[in-house]
Structures are given as C-alpha cells and as structure tokens.
C-alpha cells in the first residue's frame, strides 16, 4: 500500500519585492513527490497591516460604487449584475528538483475576494466569506522523482511590490510525497 506524507516548509517574507530562495528537505524514505500545496498567513507584527486595511477598504469602496451603479442599472433594465473584485496576488512560488530539468512546479498565493461571486444567498448585511464558503482544498498533483531528497524553491513577493509597503508574512509550502 502506498503511504503519503507531507512536509511543511515555512518561508518568512519581510520586504517588498523580496525574492527568497530556500531548500525543502525530504526524508530519505521519500520515493516520489506527488503534490504541492501553498498557504500562508500575515504575521502579527506586519508593518503593512494598515495597507491591507486600505486595500480591503479600497476594494470595498469600489464595490459599493459598482453596487450603486448596478442598482441604478437594475432599476432601469431589471438586470442584476454581481460586482467582481480583483483577487490579491501575494506572491509566486517555483520549485525545482535535481531530478528534473527546469522547474517542476509554479504556483501563486492569492487572497480570494470573490468567494461570493454568483452566490444568491448574499445580502447587503451578509456576505459569503472564505471561511464559510470555501471549497475543499487539495494539493496540485505533480509526479517527480524524490531520490535527491532536496528540492530548491523560490518565492517572490508581489503584494509588497504593488503597494510599496513591507509586508511581514509567512508562506507555507506543503510538499506531499509517497513512501
């Protein structure tokens, strides 16, 4: 029977536009890399916390503006639109294995601002949130030999670059491997 295991590698980002190179060490018993997942959280002492609030507020203001426009249109033509908010790209991850040429995984870490898009249960006083409406999260499937037991990773910050603020956050890279 094939057994799976996951190893978590935290990467701390502290500067705008920071590019961080890191290594992921797999156990010697690992046979193949079978999946990659990415997650993250802001650290409490984030310098850019105000910026997050500003970004959220800006999207809210835009949203309200769009909503008002939509209401006017809806009244006029009885057609309702759902406003679309831009998702925030936190950064980009790339992974390379010594067993393969070039990178074998490229992924993006994003904040989903559109979890309620097309959800008719939402109202003015209640909006679907990621923690109530998210679908199940699974790893992205990759199949790569894990003989060398070390993967090379690169994470590039985007949110700090866009807002010209130093954000302090932790990215977690989950590498699933078979034993």
């Amino acid at each position: 029977m094939m057994k799976e295991q996951v190893c978590v590698t935290p990467v701390i980002i502290t500067k705008a536009g920071q590019v961080k190179h890191f290594q992921i060490k797999l156990p010697k018993t690992a046979k193949k890399v079978i999946g990659v997942e990415i997650g993250g959280r802001f650290l409490k002492e984030t310098k850019g916390k105000e910026a997050i609030a500003v970004m959220a507020e800006t999207s809210l203001v835009n949203n309200v503006a769009i909503k008002e426009e939509v209401t006017l249109q809806a009244n006029a033509s009885e057609v309702r639109h759902t406003p679309f908010k831009r998702n925030i790209l936190i950064g980009e991850l790339k992974l390379q294995s010594c067993e393969e040429a070039n990178i074998f995984y490229a992924g993006e870490l994003r904040i989903d601002n559109n979890i309620g898009y097309g959800d008719f249960s939402k109202q003015r006083n209640w909006q679907p949130q990621v923690f109530t409406h998210q679908m199940q999260t699974f790893e992205d499937v990759v199949i790569t030999n894990a003989d060398s037991t070390i993967l090379l990773g690169m994470f590039k910050d985007n949110i700090g670059l866009q807002s010209r603020t130093d954000f302090n956050y932790q990215v977690n890279v989950y590498v699933w491997h078979s034993l």
Partner: peptide, 8 residues
C-alpha cells in the same frame, strides 16, 4: 483552513 470545508 486546508482541512475545513465550506457550505458549498
């Protein structure tokens, strides 16, 4: 959050 499932 990776082990949570929403109402969807």
């Amino acid at each position: 959050k990776l082990l949570m499932s929403g109402v969807n």
